[in-house]
Design a protein around this nucleic acid. Structure first.
Length: 136
DNA sequence: TAGGCCATCTGGTCCT
DNA sequence: AGGACCAGATGGCCTA
């Protein structure tokens, strides 16, 4: 907690009670703003936790930092996008997008992303992701 | 012990 | 006027 500015210290004049009311009102607003800010940041952190759960973490027992989580999410999205793009171009170009989801993406196509807790996925992940944890 | 990461406080700015 | 969002400052905790 930073110290109060000199300007907000009670002056001791005849308008003491009004100054005191102003001061207390300002303090109340500041405390309310602090509480809102804490709540807002907690919401942000909850969102980060949810993102960590869906983003590959291949063998990392340590929690990803916020920056790392964002970088991993970016790479993950790009990798999935590449899979979709390649599938639509080479696997079943005549089918519509909906069919692609079920026909073009067989388990072996994306299994490397679903086994990210296993040590064996590393080769696959390294080849699919531009983001490398070690490189940070 | 230095450096990284994080939570919190705070003041500024923008929006309703 | 008050709330939401943001960025800077600060201090605590953890790890190499």
């Amino acid at each position: 907690m930073k110290p109060c500015r000199p300007s907000c210290v009670d002056s001791g004049s005849e308008s003491d009670s009004r100054d005191s009311e102003k001061f207390e009102s300002a303090m109340r607003r500041r405390m309310a703003a602090n509480a809102r800010e804490r709540k807002r940041m907690q919401g942000l952190n909850t969102a980060f936790d949810r993102l960590r759960k869906v983003v590959p973490q291949w063998g990392q027992d340590k929690k990803l930092s916020k920056y790392e989580t964002l970088q991993m999410a970016l790479s993950y999205i790009m990798a999935l996008n590449r899979i979709l793009t390649d599938a639509s171009r080479h696997v079943a170009p005549q089918k519509d997008w909906l069919n692609l989801q079920f026909d073009g993406l067989q388990p072996e196509t994306y299994s490397c992303f679903m086994r990210y807790n296993s040590p064996v996925e590393n080769d696959c992940m390294h080849s699919s992701f531009s983001y490398h944890y070690e490189s940070l």
